[in-house]
Structures are given as C-alpha cells and as structure tokens.
Design a protein around this nucleic acid. Sequence first.
DNA 1: TTGAAAGCGGTACCAA
DNA 2: TTGGTACCGCTTTCAA
Lengths: 359, 359
Amino acid sequence: MFVCSCVRENEKRFRNGGMNLREFSKKIGLSQTTISRAMNGHPEVKEATRLRVFEAAERLNYAPNVRAKAMATGRSMAIGHIVPLSSNPDMVNPIFSDFLAGAGESCIRHGYEIVLAFAEHGRLDHAYRALVAKGGVDGLIVHDPVLDDGRIEILNDLGLPYVMHGRSHRVELPYSWVDVNNKRAFERATNFLLDLGHRKIALVNGRADADFAARRQMGYESALRGAGIEPEPAMVRSGPMTEASGYAAARDLLAGPVRPTAFLVSSIFSAYGVRRAAEEAGLTLGRDLSVVIFDDDIAYLRNGGDVPRFTALRSSVHEAGLRASDLLFRLIAEPASGPFAELLEAEFIVGQSTGPVRE
Amino acid sequence: MFVCSCVRENEKRFRNGGMNLREFSKKIGLSQTTISRAMNGHPEVKEATRLRVFEAAERLNYAPNVRAKAMATGRSMAIGHIVPLSSNPDMVNPIFSDFLAGAGESCIRHGYEIVLAFAEHGRLDHAYRALVAKGGVDGLIVHDPVLDDGRIEILNDLGLPYVMHGRSHRVELPYSWVDVNNKRAFERATNFLLDLGHRKIALVNGRADADFAARRQMGYESALRGAGIEPEPAMVRSGPMTEASGYAAARDLLAGPVRPTAFLVSSIFSAYGVRRAAEEAGLTLGRDLSVVIFDDDIAYLRNGGDVPRFTALRSSVHEAGLRASDLLFRLIAEPASGPFAELLEAEFIVGQSTGPVRE
DNA sequence: TTGAAAGCGGTACCAA
DNA sequence: TTGGTACCGCTTTCAA
C-alpha cells in the first residue's frame, strides 16, 4: 500500500512523466519532425495531420518534456523570482502572495511557469548569478529594491531580461521597473490631512533602506513644506510593516512630547498596530485621531471591500505583478525594446476615520 | 542605452547564462567527464584535480546548466506547487506565503527550487497531469484539499511523489500528508470556552467544502456534545477566511435570535472582522464577549508577538511548509518508504480577551 | 585516474 | 508537405 511503489516498477516512467517523442512517433506512424512541427504550430504541416497529432497526443497522454524542449530551444519557459529568506520579513509576506497571483495570471497567458529561488539574505547577488548561470529561466523579476541597489549592475551585466518591482533611487543605470507612485500618493494623503486642519502629522513608514519608503517620505515632506511646515524627523518612524512595529511606533509617538493628531501609515498591517496603540491611549479613530493608510489591497484580507475604519490610498499589488510580468514578457520577446518604466497610481478612498481637526 | 541590448550581440550567451562544459573543459585542459565527476563528488577523481576544477569554475564563473543536467539525470531538482487562481481567495493568500517560506528553507538545504504552476480553478486535474507529463518537477506539494479530493487518485496513478498540505476526509486511498490537528485544536478551544462558563458559542469557520474546516467543526461539535450541549447549526458560519466574511458572519450572529457569548474563529483575518462587528454592536472583546481564534502565525502580521486582544490557538504554517517539504524529499529519495503522515499540534495561548462569563 | 562516445528528448536545418 | 540528422549541455557506461 505504498503511494509511490508503482514508480520503481518502471524506472523509465519515472524519468519522464509519460511517453517520449520517439515512442509517440512510432505509435502514430509519423516522423518526430512532423509531430514537433504540428504541435508547435508550424504552418507547413497539413491541417489533417495536425489534427491527427493532437488527437493522438490527447488519447495517448503525450506531452513534450519541458526540459528537453528547453535545451533544444534555449528557452526555459519559466521566469524566476528570487525570494530573500528569513531575515527580511517584508519579503515573504502577504504582499508577495498577491504579487505572485498577478504575475501568475500573466504567466498562464504566456504558457510560462514561475520559478522561486530562495536565498539566504546577504547572499542575494550570488543567488542571482547562480540562477542565471544555471540557465533555468528566461527572465527575472527582482523584488524589494533598496536605495542603492547593487543588483542592477550585476543584472545588466548578466544580460538576462528582468523587471524590478519598485525602483532604486540612487542608481543611474538603465533598468526596467514597475512601481507605484509612492511620492505622489503620500503627498496627496498628507495634503488631505492638512486640508482637514491637521498640523501634527506622523508618518509610520516602512524600512528606512527600502526605496519605496524613501519616496513616501519625500511625498510627505514635500506636502508639509508646501503648507509651510518644516518636517520634524521625530514625527517619522521607519520599520518593518507589521502589526507589532506599527504598534510600537504609534505608542512611542503618542507618548512623545508632541502628540500627533493624525497618522499616515504605510501598510494595513502597521495600521492595525496603530489602531491598537490609539485605543490603548484611550483615543478613538475617526474622532480623536485621523488615520490615512496606504493599502496594497490584499485580496485575502479584504476581497475588495472597504478598509474598515481607515481612510485609504489604495493600490493593487496584484496589478503590479500582472504589469511587471507583462513587461518582462515584452522584454523577453524583444530585448532591445526596453527598458520600460511603468508607474501605477493609487486611488484615494475616503473612509470613516477622517477626523478630528476639521477646524 | 537599452538594458538588454547586449544580449543580442551574443546569441550564444543568451541561450545559456555562461560557458558550457565543453568550453570550460578546453580552458582548463581536462575532459568533460573528469570535470563532471569532480563537480559531482565522484570518488575516483584525484583530490588535486577536484580542487583545480572548483577553483577554475569559481574563477571563470562556470556553472552547469540545470536543464541539461536535468535531462541527463532525469531529475529536475525542482518541486512543484500548483496554485489555483482567482476563484479561490483562500489559496493565493498570506498563509500560502508563509508555507512557501517554510518549504523554501527545506529546498535550500536540498539544493532544490520551487516551481509554481498556476491553474484556472476547475482545471486543476488537468494542471497536475500536464505538470507531471511535462516532466519539470521531481515532486509535488498539493494544496487546499477538499473533502473528497479527486486529485489523490490521479496523483497516485501518475506515480510522482507528492505530499498534501492538509488531508482529504473521505478518501480511502493511501497518500502522504502534513496537517494540523484541527479537530483537537477546536475541541480544546471549545472546551476552554465551556470551562469559562459559555454555553452559546458560535463558530466562524472556513469554506464548507474545505477539509480543514470540516475537521474544525467536528472538534467544536464533539466538545459541545461532551458538555451535554447539542450543537446548533445556526451557530456555525462557513465562508472564506477574510475580514469581510468574518464581519458579515459575526454581525449576522449577533443580530440573531440567540446571541452568542463567545466566538471561535478560524483565522486572524476573520477575527478582525468579528471584532469590528462586535464593536459596532457596542460590545467590547474580553469584557462582553470571548473570542478564541485559530492563528496560523502569519509572520508578517505579527512577527511572533502576541495576538493582541484575542486568545489564540497558534500553529505555524511556516513549519507545515518545512515539514511537508522535508517529507517530500524523503519520498523522492526513497519512494517506497511512504506514505507518510504528520500531524502538527497547535499551541494554546491565553490572551487578553478571555471573558466574560467566568461564572 | 582519466577520456571517448552514446544517450537524455526535443528542435530545426536540409533534402526529398 | 514530410523525413533524416545534427545539435542543445550534461551524465554515464566502457575502455584505456
């Protein structure tokens, strides 16, 4: 009663899931060449023949071996994502799931698969080099860029098409990317709070070395300056976008010398923490405190419903994944057509927690 | 200034990330055979030679092409996860991220990669068949089993090693799986609430067709019966484990003829919804209402901290991913050693919201 | 201890 | 419109 005992009975069948082209060609009395052409849509094969091939393939459950195909064509029909492990809680996260789902949609359309390579943090460069050298993917999507990301140089050098999810601020080299307009989003959110009369606005941001966080802070500061307010470093907190981190930041800020009347929060997770800290301080959101969050529209958390109790700037990671992937496929098909740049705008949604200063 | 223009200059380099074995062997004056043996740890190669090979590989940045290696050996060094897309919000979700991170750790140790194949929902069977037929993976991890999961028969038939994440209740066939002891977890949680004096305990559960949800309900009902209470179907709600769904369920239950004094909630996401509904009804958790949640320990949301405001049964999806993957590798190495079964226990953590009945 | 050559399962060129 | 055949890059007998 062993699940896989059958496998050992037939070692041949283990190596490949089914039949190979030669057997198949013998069975239906056509050359391997013709079959290959038929299955790959080459125009010179007679329609009747093609039909016969497809019918037989279906009937005999024949499917070409991807590895062999990859070797013969030089294309592996897979795109790679390198996932930094463990020490970076921002990476293997719900956002990433949503991004993958979007990328997956694009992949389905192109008949591609996604290869996830995991790398110990700090060994990222090596991971990219290895992944490319091993030749298992036709393109790469690069996650979690930092302000001055050294991977860009490496990847340009490697010559494999890639698209970054996010940008790297201080890099002058050309590269393709898809990003949310973080600066504008936070500028708008800050202006929104300023319009309500707030003057003491705190920013609970992502990790300081993350590019997106820097852009968000730029937007925040630019809006403040536009209103004649000099940004206070003490009003800004950076850290991982988790409930715990948001809680710590908000508790700290609320206990500080200048109590904020409004919070700008970089993720819905930190926002839950901010809410907890506020409640513990006896404050009610939407009455004693205004909170605007940046919301990556996590499908799982909300399924498109409203963000309860918050005013939100909504952007879709799912769509970012889709767009980044689509871009990558264009780059793979036509390498000289890039680099591409695509900026997604966040939608502003007024929720229930906009208060209280409204002077 | 095109990122990838360099690629076209050298078509050879595009097909494979670097140099191939033949070039490499010429460069260092050894036969391909010797190099292959050296790199794969065969005993017959002289230690000095092996060192020379490794040094040269490092220096010249040579890495064997995985596809070619896969073809020659019959092993692809990749394990596959099929991800049902779109119509199932429970799949591409934060839980899945955490699971992948765990599986990734295991993969790193074994030098494997993860292939994600996305399938339109309802075409899952086909996706598995195709993935196996294409021969791109050495094993499969199967997600999101339903009560009577037809994939098991197919997969046994296919003969590729696989491990299920979760079980399928009504299937008699042998198969390997890793699962949380959902029944016991919910039995304990229910008993915990019963001990506090609660008699009207609601269950906000996952989708009705999911196996884990059925097991949780079994545990819940068994504990109630043990206390001489006949379970009320009206006290149970099934649905996707999202904030929105939890909110709807709790609001409904709180407005119903028999108002529950305690909630047993199947995920932290639904729990946020339950909390919102409770607050809207003017109830305070931990004072007017007891809530126990099952918490998959989403790293991103909490980073191992306490679950604020809830009593929790904590289990680690991350660990499930790790264990499932490890099991799969054993199965790949020794197919006849399975099927394996592994049950993870959930840890009970008393939080701040245990109240109020405590008679 | 090393090397030559035959696969692995396809694709694509060239000839028929 | 079809078929023969030389690769793709590596592993693995078999012989030296």
